[in-house]
Design a protein around this nucleic acid. Structure first.
Lengths: 99, 99
DNA sequence: TAATCTATATCACGTTCCGATATCGGAAAA
DNA sequence: TTTTCCGATATCGGAACGTGATATAGATTA
C-alpha cells in the first residue's frame, strides 16, 4: 500500500546514487531497503535496463572477488534529467508544505 | 519521457488538493496542467477510483449548473497517508540535495 | 432535434510490477 | 577436474497500471 506513490521516489534514488558513483543491483536493493523501500530483483533489474535503454544510465562490468558485477552510472542525459526532477520535487514540496 | 518519475507526484498532488478541499476530475486535470503535469481522463479517473477503493478518498455527488459532479475529499486515512508521504518526500529531498 | 458544453466513464492494448525461479561465472572444496 | 557454493543478474507469467480514443449523460442553445 502506498507503493504507487513511492515507486517514483525509488527511481529517483537510483538516479541520485548512480550520479554520485557507480552502483550495482544488489547494493541498490540493500541501500533502498535501508531507506524503507523494499523492492525485489524482479522490479529493480527491469528498471535498470529501461533507464539504460533511455540512455539515462550507462553500464560496465567488473570482476569483483571473482563475481561479475554490472555497475551503473548516470550519463550526462541522466544527470540533466536528475536536475529537472530535483526542480520538480522542490516545487512539489513547496506546494504541499505551504499552509 | 520522465513520466514514470512524475506519476507519483501527480497522485500526491491529488491527495494534497483533496485534503485542502473538495475537488473533481476536470478541475484536477486543469490544475495539474497548470503545474506542467498533463494527464488525460483515461489516467485520472481510474486513479480517483483506485484511491477511493483504497479508502484514501471519499466522494459525493452534487448537481452544479445541471451537471452532476463527483467531488472527492480525503478520508482520515487519506490524510494520514499524506502525512507519511510528506515525511518521505522531505527525507528524499534532504538526501538528494545534500552535497 | 441537433449541436454544443461540461463532466464522468470505459475500452483495448501496451507497459510495468513483482514474487518466484532460473541462470551465470568464478572460487573453493572434494 | 568436477561438484558445490555463493554473489549477482536475468527472466517468467499473471496481475495491475497507464493512456489515447471513444462513449455516455444531462442541460442549454440554436
Amino acid at each position: 500500500m502506498l507503493r504507487e506513490f513511492f515507486l517514483g521516489f525509488i527511481k529517483i534514488h537510483i538516479l541520485h546514487h548512480a550520479a554520485k558513483g557507480p552502483v550495482y543491483g544488489l547494493w541498490l536493493i540493500e541501500e533502498l531497503g535501508r531507506h524503507g523501500y523494499k523492492l525485489s530483483p524482479g522490479t529493480l533489474y527491469p528498471v535498470l535496463h529501461r533507464l539504460q535503454e533511455e540512455k539515462l544510465l550507462k553500464t560496465y562490468q567488473e570482476n569483483v572477488g571473482g563475481k561479475i558485477r554490472k555497475y551503473y552510472r548516470t550519463t550526462s542525459k541522466g544527470t540533466r534529467a536528475l536536475s529537472s526532477i530535483r526542480e520538480k520535487i522542490l516545487e512539489l514540496v513547496g506546494e504541499i508544505t505551504e499552509s
